[in-house]
Simulated assay, not measured.
Amino acid sequence: MIDQVRPSELADWFAHDASAQPVLLDVREPWEVQTASVVPQGFTLVAIPMNEIPARISELDPAQRIACLCHHGARSQRVAAFLAQNGFAEVANVAGGIDAWSSQHDPSVPRY
């Protein structure tokens, strides 16, 4: 089961394991990241489009907590499940995606 974490809860979810720098994995397309993005605070932001994850999985560290982010949460849920099936133990989906991030957590992030 993949954890579903609201944007407002992400810092607490990341704080459960301080052994490695947590990662927010943005799986949206480059144009989406340019349109609206988050400012990393207490985590590393990594942007890899969903369709590139299988070929670029080696760029991610299974020892890190990774929360996946997309526009509304569907693509990131699929990526989180894929990572979990490939040995990543601490994986979550940002529920509601960047849209929820903007509406619930940081209104300076544009909605699209």
Rank of each mutant, 00 (worst) to 15 (best):
R78G: 04
P7H: 09
H16L: 09
N93D: 15
L45P: 09
P40T: 11
D61W: 02
A15C: 02
R56C: 01
R6E: 09
Q85A: 15
G87L: 05
S103E: 11
Q85C: 03
H71P: 00
R111N: 02
D12Y: 00
R65G: 08
V109E: 08
F14Q: 04
A20C: 07
G73S: 08
I98S: 07
S102V: 06
L60G: 07
A63R: 14
Q104Y: 00
G87D: 05
A20L: 09
L60K: 10
A67P: 00
H71A: 14
I57Y: 03
D61F: 03
L60I: 09
A89E: 15
V33L: 14
E59N: 12
A84I: 01
P7R: 07
V39C: 01
V38L: 04
A84L: 05
D99L: 06
Q4T: 08
V33G: 06
I66Y: 08
R78V: 02
A47Y: 01
R65Y: 01
D3Y: 10
H16I: 00
R28D: 11
P7D: 11
I2F: 03
A55E: 13
V5H: 01
G96R: 02
S76Y: 02
V91D: 06
D12S: 11
L69Q: 05
S102M: 03
A18P: 01
S76Q: 04
V46L: 14
E32N: 04
Q41G: 09
Q64R: 15
W13K: 08
A67W: 05
R78N: 11
A89S: 14
C68E: 08
L69C: 05
A36G: 03
R28C: 08
A84E: 14
S37H: 10
E9I: 01
F88I: 06
Y112T: 09
T44F: 00
I48M: 05
F82N: 05
V38F: 02
A80E: 11
R56V: 03
A18T: 14
V94K: 03
L60D: 04
E29I: 07
A81N: 11
A11S: 12
Q104F: 00
S103K: 14
S19R: 13
L25Y: 10
H105P: 03
P107K: 12
F88Q: 07
D61Y: 05
S37T: 15
Q77P: 00
S19N: 11
F88Y: 13
Y112R: 14
D99T: 13
L10N: 08
I66L: 04
A15T: 08
P30N: 12
H105C: 12
Y112M: 10
E9R: 03
E29M: 11
L24K: 04
E59F: 04
L45Y: 08
E90C: 06
M1H: 13
E52D: 13
F82A: 07
P54D: 06
H16T: 13
E9D: 15
E52F: 10
G42F: 07
P107D: 14
E29N: 06
